[in-house]
Amino acid sequence: MSELTATPPQNEADPAAPAGSRRLRPPVLVWISGAVAAAILVLVTVGVWIAPYDPMHQDLMNTAAGPGNGHLLGTDSLGRDVLALLMSGAHNAVIGPLVIALGAVLFGTTLGMMAGWYGGLLDTLLCRWADLMYALPGLLVVVVVVGVIDGGYWLAVCVLLVLSLPTAFRMTRSVAAAQARLPYVEAARTLGLPAGRIIFRHILPNIMPTVLATFLLDFVGALIGLSGLSFLGLGAPAGTPDWGSLLQDGQSMLTVNPWVSLAPGLLLVLTATSITLLGDWMYDRFTEEGAHR
């Protein structure tokens, strides 16, 4: 039936479309999210240098104290400065999820594009594999694997990476398969271009919004997941500052200095929210542009 859908008169209404949809999400929120993300990024890279104290320094005169005495957010049970722990802990909290999201998107997208492009047996096998992975109770697998092997932070990162693959795979597979049926891709096929060229030059740029959105969503998922593991004592090794383990430490002293738990919790929520909002906004922007092409 597509053969007879002549002149697209819907275009006449086009000038109206963007104005309405853009107003839905005020850019103010996006600016704030951007600022938060940038601040976190600064902490990740130089947090340990700009922290007010060495995070491992113990102020034994002021253990488990509330804010005050030169400690803006107080100290934990060992007398370590909470603010310093937070600032230098950003590295552990964020680097792992970053690696997970990057890896998942890199491998997942490649597999997804191959499945979407070639179809057939390869597609069927990969999809069934993804189905199987979905059936696994993710966090439980990590807890068991990391707990049994006792591999620490990077093993947890690896396991989480593998567990995030199917989502990235499925997202890109569906959009890549949709692109592969479009006339411009078929025209590239009739020109006799090699598959790799078609996939990376023709399909990939046009599914970038989805890839980017997947990346940011994976990142947020991994941030929460990995901090959860640290909370359970399976993530960051003991003795290194990390938001998840700080959350755990502070539990027992909620009445003495609630900031030990509250601050890393708030930071996690803040980071996850702002990244999600940013990703959402970027996806809208890109697909909107796409619609106007």
Partner: peptide, 17 residues
């Protein structure tokens, strides 16, 4: 030897090239 021109001019060109 054989090439094609499709119907839909909006979908037959890669929007990113």
């Amino acid at each position: 030897k054989v090439q094609v021109v499709f119907q839909d001019p909006y979908a037959s060109l890669n929007p990113s090239l």
